[in-house]
């Protein structure tokens, strides 16, 4: 089963946009949550990650969830099994 990818982002954040561009370029489906608009999800992101910086990217593989804070293309590629990125 494919990994479920969720990105907690804000509309203006460049790192968030770069991460989403990377997903799109590699055909990775993702759920985009705008924590600027959704206060409840903003709290969820802060609880999950223990911090307030965006983006927070959650990659769920069955029961396992990997959280990546910030834009780190090498780490995203590894977590998603994207070769050569």
């Amino acid at each position: 089963m494919a990994k479920q990818v969720t990105i907690y982002s804000t509309q203006t954040c460049g790192y968030c946009k770069a991460a989403k561009e990377f997903f799109q370029a590699n055909n990775v489906a993702f759920e985009d949550i705008d924590v600027g608009l959704n206060q409840e999800k903003a709290r969820e992101m802060i609880e999950k990650s223990g911090q307030m910086g965006v983006p927070v990217i959650a990659i769920k593989d069955g029961d396992q969830e990997e959280l990546i804070i910030g834009f780190d293309q090498a780490r995203l590629a590894k977590a998603l099994g994207i070769a050569g990125a």
Partner: peptide
């Protein structure tokens, strides 16, 4: 840092509603 302190208003301002 990132617990209320930020260096990128463009990124993080929307979280301070």
């Amino acid at each position: 840092r990132n617990r209320g302190i930020t260096y990128c208003a463009t990124c993080d301002a929307p979280l301070f509603q």
